[in-house]
């Protein structure tokens, strides 16, 4: 449905905004490398089923997400490594990995490798933006492109919520994916303060600065 397609394209747009920013400004300043590595982990653990993905739509997106994320990490770790400031990227990701790992082991739908890794990926994605938001907090401001990147990334999962509501009412056979919905709501909530600042500042063409 339209919400999900818009969400997936918003997700794709966020990746291309980020790529554009890094290549245009030849710098990855203001971008959290830790968050990018977490997203790489999210894609790898979620798309283990890539070889037998049924729908071409999903297959293409999975390949796009994995390949573009790999390229972003290459750019940040190799090409533009000097513009990477690890002293600003100090969020303790072990807490996030522990959070996702614990929930994946406690509440998977089934105790199979695919399901446990999938649950891990869903919970990890819900908190993977924290290092990036934390870095934003520390620098107190961000380039417009970085703000657009975070906004598009936040919008992607926010749009999945109406998608789930739409499917609940329109598809009689649709079963509520409680893990994805719970994590999706948590993820969107984590962006809420950013969205507020983004909306009030950037929409007025101002520079993205925290109050």
């Amino acid at each position: 449905n339209i919400f999900r397609v818009l969400g997936d394209f918003s997700h794709l747009a966020s990746i291309f905004i980020l790529l554009h920013k890094i290549q245009q400004l030849k710098s990855c300043s203001g971008i959290s490398f830790k968050s990018q590595v977490l997203y790489m982990l999210v894609y790898i653990t979620r798309y283990l089923d890539l070889p037998w993905t049924s729908s071409p739509y999903n297959f293409i997106f999975k390949v796009l997400f994995i390949s573009s994320e790999l390229y972003i990490i290459y750019l940040m770790a190799r090409a533009y490594k000097p513009t990477n400031d690890p002293n600003l990227d100090t969020f303790h990701v072990e807490f996030l990995l522990g959070f996702a790992g614990l929930l994946a082991l406690l509440f998977p739908y089934k105790y199979t490798i695919l399901e446990v890794f999938w649950a891990f990926s869903i919970w990890l994605e819900s908190v993977a933006i924290l290092p990036q938001l934390f870095m934003l907090q520390r620098t107190g401001e961000a380039e417009a492109m970085t703000a657009h990147y975070i906004a598009a990334l936040g919008m992607y999962r926010a749009l999945y919520i109406p998608n789930w509501i739409y499917r609940y009412f329109s598809e009689p056979t649709h079963k509520v994916d409680t893990i994805a919905v719970t994590a999706g709501i948590l993820q969107t909530i984590l962006y809420s303060d950013f969205f507020w600042i983004y909306y009030t500042k950037v929409m007025r063409g101002e520079k993205f600065k925290l109050p």
Partner: peptide, 10 residues
């Protein structure tokens, strides 16, 4: 609670 078997979403 449904089982999330159908991984039809990204």
């Amino acid at each position: 609670v449904a089982d999330g078997g159908s991984k039809d979403e990204l």
